[in-house]
Nucleic acid binder design. Structure first.
Lengths: 152, 152
DNA sequence: CTCATTGCAAACGATTTGCAGAGAT
DNA sequence: ATCTCTGCAAATCGTTTGCAATGAG
């Protein structure tokens, strides 16, 4: 979709940061993991990809990497805090680097994803916390609704 | 957990209303459908049940009703506007009569479901609509987060 | 050498679908 | 009689798991 900017500044998480983190935690920095992280770091903007999409892109370089390896690696990377996954309505979850802090709106009709600032729900978050003793955690699930084109 | 105002008037949807609606739309009021609606109407409060739970309860009376029949009936009832389904995080969707209009909070840790008034998100709903040209539709997916016991 | 990680295939849970027969109108 | 609906089994989709082999440290 988009192409990698070559080299001005190191992005928030470079592949090497993650590799170092894996090793620091006693894990092993395998070619598969390295390739997965490379895919997530992606181009100029970090990617939001399903496990299947990550697998496809990884397989372009390492054809034998299995989908299950991607799921297991994502789990490991998530435990280390490098990756988060987000549920966008019905379809599969999408994975992305933990660096970017924003919320997501997903159109129930066309599937379009809109990002919005993390702070958007702070106010009602507080209100709900007091009134209902419940702390909403709006990053793990997208808010669903209708985008402009699809909304009546 | 809030309680429905008790009984002055007949509840919004009785089994017979639904049966009449099915027939009015050219559908057939089968024993399976009747039993399904009876389960959803439930006791004093209307129920929020998974397809599997509905099936179990229906099978207590009609042992041969298949899970797929429940799914298909729910779909039909939903098209007629009698039923809605709600996604509460990871597990299966839950079905309920369309009468009750409220939002849901689901604890990511223990799965507890809290209901909250429909109006709670009206204000940010408007704000998001203007700022991001997106109309949130917060009834189809629960808001996830942490309940008091589970929240750190 | 050891133990984390992998590939593969098979299991899984939730939901959907194809089909021939049953049953509501 | 018609045509919707049903039961059953099998298919599908996203994700997880068991296991023996690989390979990172």
């Amino acid at each position: 979709v988009e192409r990698a900017r070559s080299s001005a500044q190191p992005p928030a998480h470079r592949v090497d940061d993650v590799v170092a983190g894996i090793r620091a935690a006693g894990g092993r920095a395998t070619p598969a993991r390295r390739a997965i992280v490379e895919v997530l770091v992606g181009g100029p903007h970090h990617q939001h990809l399903t496990a299947e999409e990550v697998t496809e892109r990884v397989q372009a370089v390492l054809p034998d990497v299995a989908l299950s390896t991607v799921y297991r690696s994502m789990e490991a990377l998530e435990e280390l805090g490098f990756v988060e996954h987000l549920h966008i309505g019905h379809g599969p979850a999408v994975y992305h680097l933990a660096a970017e802090q924003h919320l997501h709106l997903v159109c129930e009709s066309c599937g379009a994803v809109t990002e919005l600032p993390q702070s958007t729900l702070d106010a009602i978050g507080e209100e709900i916390r007091h009134r209902h003793r419940f702390r909403i955690e709006p990053r793990h699930f997208a808010l669903s609704g209708l985008c402009e084109e699809c909304g009546e």
